[in-house]
Computed example of a mutant assay.
Amino acid sequence: MDANRLKELGLLPLWRLKSGTALDRQPSAPSVESSSIESSLIQQIVPEAQEVILSAASDRDTTIAHADWEQLEQMVSVCTACQLCQTRRKTVFGVGDKQADWLFIGEGPGAREDTLGEPFVGQAGKLLDSMLQALKLGRNQNVYIANIVKCRPPNNRNPQDIEAQQCRPYLLRQIALIQPKLIVTLGKVAAQNLLGSGDSIASLRGKLHEFAGIPLIVTYHPAYLLRSLTDKAKAWEDLCFARETILMQQRKAQQ
């Protein structure tokens, strides 16, 4: 563009920065002294922030650990401790006899459970009910059913570690309130979370484990059994093993 055109537009005279002016210079690197001060502040702030986070987590765990059934269910219903709260419809607290000898623990709610707010109410739930009936048990007959997480993971994916960790105090309090004689984990996710193990179902089944001093037996998740019918017989073996474990406890108590 020529000078006359620039003048018509009111863009003359042109002003140019001299070399070496403040705007022409690149930002200087922080001094050694300022870097040292910043590093010192970070070293002070980070531990303090961690302490606040740990303190808050400890307070939450303590509150949950002293809750009664009504308080615990209320806490779960409004929980926002992990991202699952953003996509849930309803929390799925648990269902059954609150003084049960048998505690069944799955991994997390599915789509139908998310809608109704009760664990194991779809096809997998019907199969679980049939398994319980074969043992002369039922949802409200000496059985309590819960999950590792209280909210549905999107697309029925496995719960992430952080999600399971945030829900763990709720489950621990449920176990403490119920005081079951036996825990039966349904599926790999539940077994691995409670046992702190990365082992497969195949290597964990058929053995008597322990959680918080309570005998624990591992079996397949009913949803898996719907896809792998040949493993139903193995699941029945696990439940018979669980029944025998309960009976042995009763015999020892009578001696």
Score class of each variant (00 low, 15 high):
111 A>Y: 04
111 A>E: 13
112 R>Y: 07
136 K>H: 14
114 D>Q: 07
138 G>I: 08
122 G>I: 00
212 A>I: 03
221 H>L: 03
107 E>Q: 14
218 V>I: 10
126 K>A: 11
113 E>N: 04
168 R>M: 13
230 T>Y: 08
207 K>F: 04
116 L>M: 09
188 K>E: 13
143 V>N: 07
146 A>Q: 06
144 Y>G: 01
143 V>S: 12
145 I>D: 02
179 Q>R: 15
144 Y>S: 02
105 I>Y: 07
195 L>N: 02
179 Q>V: 06
127 L>E: 01
211 F>L: 14
181 K>D: 06
211 F>I: 12
140 N>L: 11
160 Q>T: 12
236 W>H: 10
218 V>C: 11
181 K>Q: 14
229 L>H: 06
135 L>R: 14
229 L>W: 03
209 H>W: 08
142 N>W: 10
168 R>V: 01
108 G>I: 08
234 K>H: 09
147 N>Y: 00
163 E>P: 12
129 D>H: 09
158 N>D: 13
143 V>G: 04
185 T>N: 13
201 I>H: 02
142 N>A: 05
205 R>I: 13
218 V>M: 03
217 I>W: 04
158 N>M: 09
176 A>H: 09
193 N>H: 14
138 G>C: 10
133 Q>D: 11
212 A>H: 12
153 P>F: 06
219 T>S: 15
218 V>Q: 08
217 I>R: 11
226 L>A: 04
164 A>S: 15
166 Q>W: 04
223 A>Q: 12
160 Q>D: 08
140 N>F: 13
203 S>D: 08
122 G>D: 10
225 L>I: 11
190 A>H: 09
155 N>T: 09
109 P>E: 05
228 S>A: 14
194 L>M: 12
231 D>E: 12
121 V>G: 03
162 I>L: 14
199 D>Y: 03
201 I>E: 00
195 L>E: 01
163 E>D: 15
234 K>L: 14
145 I>L: 15
224 Y>Q: 08
185 T>H: 13
202 A>N: 14
117 G>D: 07
133 Q>L: 10
231 D>M: 03
216 L>K: 00
171 L>G: 06
209 H>I: 05
122 G>Y: 00
112 R>N: 11
136 K>F: 07
162 I>T: 10
214 I>F: 02
225 L>C: 09
157 R>K: 15
194 L>Q: 08
150 K>N: 15
163 E>N: 15
143 V>H: 03
122 G>N: 06
211 F>Y: 15
144 Y>W: 04
116 L>P: 05
193 N>I: 00
106 G>K: 02
113 E>R: 07
200 S>D: 07
183 I>R: 08
168 R>G: 03
141 Q>P: 00
189 V>L: 01
197 S>V: 01
135 L>A: 13
198 G>V: 04
181 K>M: 04
160 Q>P: 00
185 T>E: 08
156 N>Y: 12
225 L>Q: 01
191 A>T: 09
157 R>L: 15
151 C>F: 13
167 C>F: 13
222 P>E: 04
128 L>F: 10
122 G>K: 05
108 G>Q: 09
132 L>N: 07
175 I>Q: 05
156 N>Q: 12
195 L>G: 02
139 R>W: 07
204 L>P: 03
120 F>G: 01
185 T>C: 14
105 I>D: 01
218 V>T: 10
210 E>T: 15
216 L>I: 04
223 A>T: 07
148 I>L: 11
181 K>V: 01
